[in-house]
Design a protein around this nucleic acid. Structure first.
Lengths: 135, 135
DNA sequence: CTGAATCCCAGAGGATACTG
DNA sequence: CAGTATCCTCTGGGATTCAG
C-alpha cells in the first residue's frame, strides 16, 4: 500500500484533497449497489440485467452511475455491434478492489440491520415522546 | 459473522430490504467523513473540533449527520451540563466497526486518487474530442 | 459553545416518451 | 436492447439568524 496515504490522513478531510472527489463517487448508494452487484455476480452483465437486479433504480440513474464508474476506470463498457445492441459492463481490476470495500459495507449493513433498526426505533421513541405536559 | 447475510445477498438489492436504509446512511459523504474522523482521532471529540477537522462541512450538515449516526447507534452523544455547554461525540462499538469500513474506503481513495484522476482525464478527453470532422 | 430554526435554490433523481 | 431527451418534483445542503 501507499505509505503516504496513511502518513497524511489528516489531509483527507481538507476540502481540496483530490481524494475527496473519488470518495464522493463511492459514497453514493447507487454506485455502491452497482459495484456490489457486479462483484457478486462476478461476470459481465448487461444493462437491463443490472436494472432488474438493482430493484428500484431508474434507467437514468443506472446510466449515470455506470458512466461515472466507467469514467473513473472502475467499470469497463463493451459494446457488441449486433442487432439488437448488446452492451456488457464488467469490473476492472480497480473496480474489483473498490467493489470489495463497498460489498463489505453492504454485508455489514445486512448483518447488523436488525440491531441498528432497533436502536433507531428506541431513538425515535424518545424523540416522539415529549416530556409529560405539565398539569 | 451472520451466515444469512451471505446466503441471501441477492435480497440486498431488493427495494424493500431493511439493510438498504442502513446502507444509505453510510453511503453518504459526510457520514463517511465523520465516522472516519472519529475513528482516526480515536477519542471523544467536541462539535466544533469536528467541524474544524471536516473542512467545508456546515454546522447544519454536521448536526444532521451526527444525529443520524446517533440514531442508528453508531455514535454516542454526551452532554456535560457546564457553561459554556460541552458536548462530546464518540464512536460506539458498532460505530467503530462501521468506521473501519468507511476508513478503508477513504484510505483506498487516497491511495488510488492519482490513478483514478488520470483515468478520469482520459475519459473526459475522449468525450470532449469528437471524431475528426470529415474533410 | 452547541446547537435549532428559516429561507432558499441548484441540482439529484423520478416518470415518461422517443430513437438507433 | 440500450440508451437519450424532457419535464418536473423534491430535497440536500448552504447561508444566515436566533437561543440556551
Amino acid at each position: 500500500m501507499d505509505t503516504t496515504a496513511r502518513a497524511d490522513w489528516k489531509l483527507t478531510y481538507r476540502r481540496d484533497c483530490p481524494s475527496r472527489t473519488v470518495i464522493e463517487v463511492l459514497a453514493n448508494k447507487w454506485a455502491l449497489y452497482v459495484l456490489g452487484a457486479l462483484r457478486r455476480y462476478d461476470r459481465p452483465m448487461r444493462f437491463n440485467e443490472l436494472r432488474r437486479v438493482l430493484d428500484g433504480i431508474t434507467q437514468k440513474m443506472l446510466t449515470q452511475t455506470l458512466r461515472a464508474l466507467e469514467r473513473d476506470g472502475l467499470v469497463s463498457r463493451t459494446v457488441y455491434p449486433t442487432v439488437p445492441p448488446r452492451v456488457e459492463y464488467e469490473l476492472t481490476a480497480l473496480g474489483v478492489e473498490a467493489g470489495q470495500l463497498t460489498a463489505a459495507i453492504a454485508d455489514w449493513s445486512v448483518a447488523h440491520a436488525q440491531e441498528i433498526l432497533t436502536a433507531r426505533g428506541r431513538f425515535d421513541e424518545r424523540d416522539a415522546a415529549p416530556p409529560a405536559p405539565v398539569r
